[in-house]
């Protein structure tokens, strides 16, 4: 007998599973998956305001602009103010913007070990916790929010949703194929392993900067 069958067989014995009950139970499981039920959710408020407040609490920095066209200038201005390089690797989805006009040197694609600044968009932004929901894909490489020391995310205001459940509902509706990775990112990487003292930039970015558009 395979280990799988042994484990499942023992579980069925422990659970007192009988042949006729099995089909019924499988249907019940199917139903539970097909009609997911939410648990209690914190009551909604002004989502963009909550998102910004929570994102700052998680130590992201937040800036904003009215239209997507202003993003390169906002990015360049912030990078210069921080004393950081204006050379960055961007998610291909943003290749159409006028980066050179803003004084940025960009490469569209996936970040490598030597890229200092990575730029991504986000699928949704979750107000409850100030969290970015990023999905993987050719247009949105996960490494861009992971390898560089600085991660900049472009967050269209319309992407801000009250909670994770709403984001999942949108994901189910919009994604034909479930992406390999969905990353929820809430601020810069950190650790408190030594004496419970929080240090930013454990393995991932030291800083996360959000630009709310709209």
């Amino acid at each position: 007998m395979s280990t799988r069958d042994d484990i499942l067989g023992r579980l069925r014995r422990q659970l007192g599973r009988t042949g006729s009950g099995l089909a019924e139970a499988r249907r019940r499981i199917r139903d539970e998956i097909d009609t997911p039920r939410s648990g209690p959710r914190p009551s909604p408020g002004d989502d963009p305001e909550r998102f910004i407040g929570r994102a700052r609490a998680m130590l992201s920095t937040v800036d904003g602009c009215a239209t997507m066209d202003e993003v390169p200038a906002k990015v360049a201005g912030w990078l210069r103010a921080q004393g950081l390089t204006t050379r960055l690797v961007i998610a291909p989805a943003f290749a159409g913007l006028d980066w050179s006009g803003a004084g940025c040197e960009v490469r569209a694609g996936a970040a490598g070990p030597h890229d200092a600044v990575g730029l991504t968009g986000c699928f949704r932004a979750i107000a409850e916790t100030g969290t970015l929901m990023l999905r993987s894909g050719a247009d949105m490489p996960p490494v861009n929010s992971l390898l560089p020391d600085t991660h900049i995310a472009v967050v269209p205001r319309t992407c801000i949703v009250p909670d994770m459940e709403t984001a999942w509902t949108h994901a189910r509706a919009e994604w034909r194929h479930w992406p390999r990775a969905v990353n929820l990112v809430s601020g810069p990487s950190r650790t408190a392993d030594i004496e419970q003292t929080i240090v930013l930039g454990a393995h991932g970015p030291y800083r996360v900067h959000l630009i709310i558009v709209g």
């Binding site: 996936a110 390999r180 969905v182």
Partner: peptide, 17 residues
């Protein structure tokens, strides 16, 4: 800071994973 939901290996066209 991170919650990662990982589903299968990289897809055709994925630059990483």
């Amino acid at each position: 800071n991170y919650v990662s939901l990982l589903t299968g290996p990289r897809h055709a066209g994925d630059p990483d994973g």
